[in-house]
Design a protein around this nucleic acid. Structure first.
Lengths: 227, 227
DNA sequence: TACAAATTGAAACAACTGTTTTAAACTGGA
DNA sequence: TCCAGTTTAAAACAGTTGTTTCAATTTGTA
């Protein structure tokens, strides 16, 4: 029979589960097929049999756990698109943080994405096109609504970067935060507190731009690349 | 002769140079002794002869390039400790960004540090104690001066995280920024622009927290806007 | 010059990598 | 029951890893 997309749920599922954890923990290169197979309790040949190789398994893992993450934490955390922009931004930040910091399966995809950003594999291009860019567009449109139309494209990009950067920090520097402050950033209460701080910090950061735009337009017009 | 700390400058130096680049590019696990030796134009046995193994070489590389980075980009970018706190913060941000984004050797240590944070090696503990914690203390004291004494330790930590997070973003998401906006974040002009944005964004973010402190009009007159 | 120590070079080592092979075990329909 | 087709299992494969061995070469010094 065809062993392409959706048969042999048992073994296949077990491999996807084990691979999700191992890839998230060790990265693509650091994860070994033997480690994955041991955790999934299957023979080393199973990965090649079901997925056709380590790389194709990795691509499947990305797909599988992205669906899972999207289902558990929608992009705006359930906030409706016609809600006040402030609420939309808060939803975005909370979703982004929970996807990265929540314990276990929900965070697997976030970790994989993070690894793709710092050391891309062959899946990078697809991920940027299908996942990063759409999300970036949504955040940019939220920011745009908050700062007004007189702010340049580039400054909106910088503001988006400031927001995303604050969120990513808690994942990237997780070991440091733990070591330095003995703070567990994966507890839901803590995530909520962090989210609210980033929300308030960014609200003020954005407000600045919306009031000052006329002073700085002369400096930025040179490098404006609108589409 | 003793081949312990500072002899055989030629071969040793060449290995440190090559290893700095390869480790920064590929990480500890990703870098192979053969790749390093090939670039350094030495035999594969040289690393074990001069440093006693890959791991000890790595520790030496961290030491060596940290000294280099500190010399080229001091912690506050040359701003004196008695300068206005705003200037100190600006110096800190510029130093942090240039250390990460500047091209070639100056960035090697920043990249190695970043890798240590996301996937620690045996050098992690020492780096946190000797480098991360002191730097964190300096930033915290700057932030403390800016927001006043009535702000809790935890809120200062959150603010420091927001500042560092914004800086780290441009390194961690470098591939994404390049792909998404075709923007080269390693050009000095661009780094300066990013630094100034983070400076302004953070100034407002901090101001929010110190809203209840009234006595802070002396050094920030240039950037007072809303409220 | 002579000689012991330091350095280099090529080959080999054992451990580990992803993948393939080969055969045995299982499965479900005739 | 039988038996093709599917799935599992163990072993082996070729390639790479960090490290070691050991002889050849270079170096410093008396």
């Amino acid at each position: 029979m065809e062993h392409d997309t959706s048969s042999n749920a048992d073994c296949r599922e077990r491999i996807l589960e084990a691979a999700g954890e191992i890839f998230a923990d060790c990265g693509f290169r650091g994860a070994t097929v033997r480690k994955i197979c041991e955790r999934a309790k299957v023979n080393v040949a199973a990965i090649n049999y079901y997925f056709g190789g380590k790389e194709k398994l990795y691509a499947e893992v990305l797909r599988h756990w992205h669906d899972f993450a999207t289902k558990k934490y929608p992009l705006l955390f359930g906030v409706r698109e016609d809600a006040p922009v402030d609420e939309q931004l808060r939803g975005f930040i909370r979703s982004f943080l929970f996807r990265l910091l929540d314990k276990g399966k929900p965070a697997w995809f976030g970790k994989l994405m993070m690894r793709e950003m710092t050391e891309p594999t062959r899946s990078f291009e697809r991920l940027v096109k299908e996942i990063v860019r759409p999300r970036d567009r949504i955040l940019a449109s939220i920011v745009q609504k908050m700062v007004g139309t007189s702010v340049s494209e580039e400054e909106i990009r910088l503001c988006c970067a400031s927001i995303i950067g604050q969120c990513l920090y808690y994942y990237n520097a997780m070991y440091v935060v733990t070591r330095l402050y003995h703070q567990d950033v994966s507890k839901p209460d803590e995530i909520e507190r962090i989210a609210e701080h980033i929300m308030q910090f960014s609200l003020k950061g954005l407000e600045h731009n919306s009031k000052h735009d006329e002073d700085r337009t002369k400096k930025e017009t040179e490098s404006r690349t609108s589409f």
